[in-house]
Computed example of a mutant assay.
Amino acid sequence: MLLQPKRMKYRKYQKNIQNKKKDNTYELAFGEYGIKAITNGYLPARTLEATKQVLNKKLKKAGKLWICVFPNIPRTEKPAEVRMGKGKGAVSFWVAQIPAGQILFELNTNTPELASQVQKIVNKMVNIPVRLIKREEAL
């Protein structure tokens, strides 16, 4: 099932919603390695879920994965061939707002080769450029 909030104060938001930047998402908290975003962007819930499934399949029993972002911003779309006006469209999908430097995934594994393979997979699947960081580099 795709990630989305259980309940929200308002069902629809304007597109330029600005979340307050959280200070705790720029340092490693759980794992030895982290996948860090280099630039700003949005990460759809479908992409996040697909990436999570591929990474869990890749890691198997060799490591543990933590997801550090959550898609809590709704995106609306109007149906095809609908005339202008008549209000805002229905909620179509959910996205996570990613500021530059935020950690997307954390993982714990014994081999650095596996961590670099995970970084290559995430770089292909996510539309934001990412890099691999280690616990010593994050401090």
Rank of each mutant, 00 (worst) to 15 (best):
Q4H: 07
I17R: 07
N108P: 04
P71R: 03
N56D: 04
W94I: 02
V126D: 10
D23L: 09
Q14V: 15
N16V: 11
M84Q: 10
K124G: 00
T25M: 07
L65M: 12
A96E: 07
N123R: 10
N123K: 12
M84A: 12
I35A: 03
I98D: 11
L107A: 07
I103V: 06
F105D: 12
L28H: 04
K57G: 14
A80C: 02
K6L: 13
K60S: 09
I128H: 00
G85W: 15
L139R: 01
Q117E: 09
K9M: 01
L28K: 05
T76R: 09
N123Y: 10
R75D: 04
V82L: 15
E49C: 09
K86N: 13
A96I: 09
A50T: 14
G63R: 05
K58P: 00
G89R: 00
P99F: 03
A37K: 07
A138G: 00
Y10I: 10
T25K: 10
Q102G: 08
I73T: 11
G89Q: 02
I38C: 01
I103C: 08
L28I: 06
S116L: 01
G101E: 03
N19M: 08
L43Y: 05
K22I: 13
V118T: 12
Y26W: 08
R83V: 14
K60R: 11
T25R: 10
E32N: 06
K36C: 02
N40W: 06
N40P: 01
N16I: 08
K15N: 12
K64S: 15
Q53P: 03
T47D: 15
W66H: 05
V130T: 07
L3I: 04
T111H: 01
L139P: 00
G41R: 05
S116D: 03
F93Y: 02
W66F: 08
A138Q: 02
K36N: 13
E49V: 12
L43K: 14
K22R: 12
E49M: 13
P112N: 05
I38Q: 08
T51F: 07
A45Q: 11
I38M: 11
L107V: 03
L59T: 10
L28P: 04
K134V: 03
K36T: 07
Q53H: 14
V95G: 13
Y42R: 13
M125V: 10
G31Q: 09
S116M: 07
P99D: 02
K6M: 03
K64C: 14
K64Q: 15
N72C: 01
I121Q: 04
N72K: 04
Y33A: 07
N108S: 11
E32Q: 02
S92G: 08
I133H: 02
L43G: 11
